[in-house]
């Protein structure tokens, strides 16, 4: 990218507009758009991202939009935007809450494969609140999410956040519906749900998914040959086919599906006597699944 600013640990960054001073502790990460540093100011720790002026402005807007969610924002809180002036050049940056925790793919390393399903449930909770605001996430790569506490995930890069009805601003091919030839790049909940499903599969089988990118049938075979993913196969397939209109619908199905497989394994070939009895099994199963979630914790 053109004139990126590289800061070094210990450096003081002084905002041209606010006069606030931020001391760089270390680099947190970098991507196609910018470099993010962990910094300390008079009010404590924060994440500082240098990017071009247009990205700073649009990410600022995205972060402020997210704050309309009640309670904890699904993304980092926006602090302020400013410029650094150095040797005649201007480097725009903004500050946001530093979100501490592992990224999705780091989190799942060394854990049971079933954890991918739980991450998917959390991801759907995140998407539910984002979609309620009329935005999609767009770029669903695991590096963009952080597992906070043990119950939720939050987004750290909102560069792909797009209003419903527009064309997705930023995406990564692997999680992009259009790249799999499974639909358009129009921002709608089903776009994110497709990405969430691929993300779940690739958390466990990244290399294989990468290799078959573009061929949805091969992607389905990966699901079918994975013991953990088999449990939720119908839900993933529905998401691949764009059958869910909302994150809540997908989440509900996911819990039911997870539950059904559990009861089936528990009750063996026992027959359902009536419709209602069947329903009860499902309910009991759902409870079992929820219990499982806690146990796994």
């Amino acid at each position: 990218m053109k004139n990126r600013y590289e800061a070094s640990p210990g450096e003081q960054i002084k905002g041209k507009w606010t006069g606030h001073v931020w001391r760089v502790e270390r680099e947190i990460g970098r991507g196609a758009n910018g470099i993010v540093y962990l910094v300390r100011g008079s009010a404590g720790r924060a994440a500082l991202k240098f990017a071009d002026s247009a990205s700073v402005a649009s990410e600022t807007n995205a972060l402020t939009a997210l704050e309309r969610v009640r309670g904890a924002s699904p993304g980092p809180f926006f602090i302020e935007a400013d410029d650094l002036e150095k040797e005649g050049a201007v480097y725009p940056f903004f500050l946001m809450e530093f979100i501490d925790g592992p990224m999705l793919h780091t989190f799942i390393k060394g854990k049971k494969e079933e954890w991918a399903i739980i991450l998917l449930i959390w991801l759907l909770t995140f998407l539910e609140s984002l979609h309620r605001l009329g935005h999609v996430m767009g770029d669903l790569k695991p590096e963009n999410f952080i597992v906070v506490s043990r119950k939720a995930i939050r987004a750290v890069d909102v560069g792909g956040m797009t209003k419903f009805g527009r064309s997705i601003k930023e995406y990564t091919a692997l999680y992009d519906r259009a790249a799999w030839q499974a639909g358009t790049r129009r921002a709608e909940p089903a776009y994110d749900l497709f990405g969430a499903a691929v993300l779940t599969v690739s958390l466990l089988h990244k290399q294989t998914v990468q290799r078959v990118l573009g061929n949805i049938d091969d992607l389905k075979s990966i699901v079918q040959s994975s013991p953990a993913l088999q449990l939720i196969e119908p839900v993933l397939f529905n998401a691949f086919a764009g059958k869910y209109e909302s994150a809540s619908a997908m989440k509900r199905d996911l819990l039911l599906c997870f539950a059904k497989t559990k009861t089936r394994t528990r009750t063996g070939r026992q027959k359902r006597k009536t419709f209602w009895a069947g329903k009860w099994f499902v309910l009991a199963g759902a409870l079992a699944a929820i219990l499982m979630l806690f146990l796994l914790n």
């Binding site: 402005a57 807007n61 410029d83 725009p92 903004f94």
Partner: peptide, 11 residues
């Protein structure tokens, strides 16, 4: 322009 104005323009 100041950052807040830039954000409005970006929108």
């Amino acid at each position: 322009l100041p950052p807040a104005t830039r954000s409005e323009i970006a929108e």
